[in-house]
C-alpha cells in the first residue's frame, strides 16, 4: 500500500475557512516513456481525487498524465460541523486508496 500525508487542522471555529492538503505516493506513470526494446511503459496514473466531508463530496479533481509523481493537492474548506474528512484516490485500474482525518468544529 502506498503512503499518504494529509494535513487537516484538528480544530476550527464554525464558519472558519481552513486549508486542507493531501499528498499521496504514486509514480503517475504517464504511458509515454519508451522501453529500450520498443513500445512504452504502460500508463498507470491516479485518475481521480475526491474529498468527502461528513458524508458529502466537497472537492474533486480529475488527474492527467502531466501531473507529477506523488501528487500534492491543496484546497480550502469552510468548517461547518465536526466530522470526518475522507480522502480518496482512484487509479486507472479502479484501485482505491483512502485516508481519513477528523476535524472538530466549535
Amino acid at each position: 500500500m502506498s503512503r499518504a500525508l494529509v494535513s487537516v487542522p484538528p480544530r476550527a471555529r464554525r464558519g472558519e475557512v481552513v486549508e486542507i492538503r493531501a499528498m499521496v505516493q504514486h509514480e503517475m506513470e504517464t504511458g509515454f516513456r519508451p522501453l529500450p526494446q520498443g513500445g512504452f511503459v504502460p500508463r498507470l496514473i491516479l485518475r481521480r481525487f475526491e474529498c468527502d466531508y461528513d458524508g458529502a463530496t466537497v472537492f474533486a479533481a480529475d488527474l492527467h498524465p502531466a501531473i507529477s509523481a506523488n501528487p500534492y493537492i491543496a484546497f480550502r474548506l469552510r468548517a461547518t460541523r465536526s466530522g470526518e474528512l475522507v480522502f480518496r484516490w482512484i487509479d486507472d485500474r479502479g484501485a482505491v486508496r483512502e485516508e481519513r482525518a477528523a476535524i472538530e468544529v466549535a
Binding site: 503512503r3 500525508l5 492538503r21 506523488n70 500534492y72
Partner: peptide, 16 residues
C-alpha cells in the same frame, strides 16, 4: 514543511 516535502513519503515507507 513535512506535509509538503515528498521525501517524507519515503520516511514513512522506511518506518514500515
Amino acid at each position: 514543511d513535512d506535509k509538503a516535502n515528498p521525501g517524507m513519503l519515503s520516511v514513512l515507507e522506511g518506518e514500515e
